[in-house]
C-alpha cells in the first residue's frame, strides 16, 4: 500500500512533440501485464479439449502441409542435410512468432477499447501483453521441436544457445513492426489488413519453407539483409546445424534495423498514445 503522505506529483498536460514512452511507468505496471498474460493464456484454452495443444497447432499443421506439398510432391528434401519436417518446423516456429506478434500488437489497442476508455494503464502494456503471450506460445512449440529432434535422432549441439539471440532479434523486430502500426490502427482499421499483406509478401521472400541456396544470383546474397531471413538462417544453424552461422555484417545489420525500427515505432506510438482513447 502506498503511504498516505506520499509526495509523488502526477502532472497531466497536453502532449508536446516527440518523446519516448515512460518505461518506468511500464515497468511499474508489470503486475498488470503478468495478470493479463496469465488471463489470456487461461482463457484461450479454456473450454477446449485440446488445451495448450493449440499453441503448436498452426506451425505444426503448416509444417505438415508444406511437407506434403514441397517435401513429397516437389522433392524439397533433395540436398537437405536434415529431414524436411524438422527443416521447415524450425523456421515456421519463429515465423509464426513474427506474424502473430506483428498482427496482434497492431490490433492490441483496438481489441482493448473497453479497458483503454475506462482505466489508465500505460498503453504500451497492451502490445507487450501480446508479445509475451506469443513468446509463451513459442516456448511450448519449441518443446515440440525438441521432441521432434529426439524422434528424428537429430544431435543437440552447443550452438543451441544462440537460439536466445535469434529469438531476441525476432522479438525486437516484430514488436517494432507491430508497434509502428498499433497507434494508427486505432484511427484507421485498414492497418491490420496492411500488416497481413506485408506478412504474406515477406513470407515469400524469406526462406521459411524453402532452402536459401535455391535463390538465384543477386538474391542469394541480398536476402540475408531481411532480418527475419537472418533469424531463420540463424535458427536452422543453431538448432539443426544447417549451413553456416550468418556472417557478422548481416547480423549487425539485422540487429541495427530491428533496434532502429523499435525506436522509431516507440516514438510514433507515444505520439499517438495521449489521444488514443478519443479515436478508438
Amino acid at each position: 500500500m502506498a503511504s498516505k503522505t506520499s509526495s509523488d506529483i502526477t502532472v497531466i498536460q497536453p502532449p508536446r512533440g516527440w518523446s519516448f514512452p515512460n518505461l518506468r511507468e511500464v515497468w511499474d505496471a508489470r503486475a498488470i501485464l503478468l495478470n493479463f498474460v496469465q488471463r489470456n493464456f487461461n482463457v484461450t484454452y479454456r473450454q477446449t479439449i485440446g488445451g495448450p495443444i493449440y499453441a503448436v497447432y498452426t506451425p505444426f499443421m503448416t509444417m505438415i502441409g508444406y511437407t506434403l506439398l514441397l517435401g513429397v510432391l516437389f522433392g524439397a528434401q533433395e540436398g537437405l542435410s536434415v529431414p524436411y519436417p524438422l527443416f521447415s518446423f524450425c523456421a515456421l516456429l519463429v515465423w509464426t512468432l513474427f506474424t502473430n506478434v506483428t498482427q496482434n500488437a497492431t490490433t492490441s489497442l483496438t481489441q482493448n477499447t473497453n479497458l483503454i476508455q475506462k482505466i489508465y494503464i500505460p498503453r504500451l502494456v497492451f502490445p507487450l501483453i501480446e508479445t509475451c503471450m506469443q513468446l509463451l506460445t513459442f516456448a511450448i512449440a519449441f518443446v515440440v521441436l525438441l521432441l521432434m529432434m529426439v524422434v528424428y535422432a537429430q544431435p543437440f549441439l552447443w550452438q543451441i544457445v544462440w537460439v536466445v539471440f535469434y529469438v531476441a532479434v525476432a522479438l525486437v523486430f516484430s514488436l517494432g513492426f507491430g508497434l509502428l502500426f498499433a497507434g494508427f490502427q486505432a484511427r484507421f482499421r485498414d492497418m491490420s489488413y496492411l500488416v497481413q499483406t506485408i506478412n504474406r509478401l515477406l513470407f515469400f521472400v524469406t526462406p521459411v519453407v524453402y532452402d536459401s541456396t535455391l535463390l538465384p544470383a543477386p538474391f542469394n546474397t541480398l536476402y540475408i539483409y531481411n532480418p527475419m531471413a537472418l533469424v531463420i538462417e540463424g535458427m536452422r544453424w543453431a538448432m539443426l546445424n544447417v549451413g553456416e552461422q550468418p556472417a557478422l555484417i548481416p547480423t549487425l545489420s539485422a540487429v541495427g534495423v530491428s533496434v532502429a525500427l523499435l525506436l522509431v515505432a516507440l516514438l510514433v506510438f507515444q505520439r499517438l498514445e495521449p489521444t488514443v482513447a478519443d479515436v478508438l
Partner: peptide
C-alpha cells in the same frame, strides 16, 4: 483527464499521490 485516459488540449492538472479511478 484526471484519470489520464485522455490528455487535455491545454492547461495542466497536478495530482499528489497515487491516483485510482473507478469509471
Amino acid at each position: 483527464i484526471l484519470s489520464r485516459i485522455t490528455a487535455p488540449s491545454s492547461g495542466q492538472v497536478r495530482i499528489r499521490g497515487k491516483v485510482g479511478s473507478l469509471l
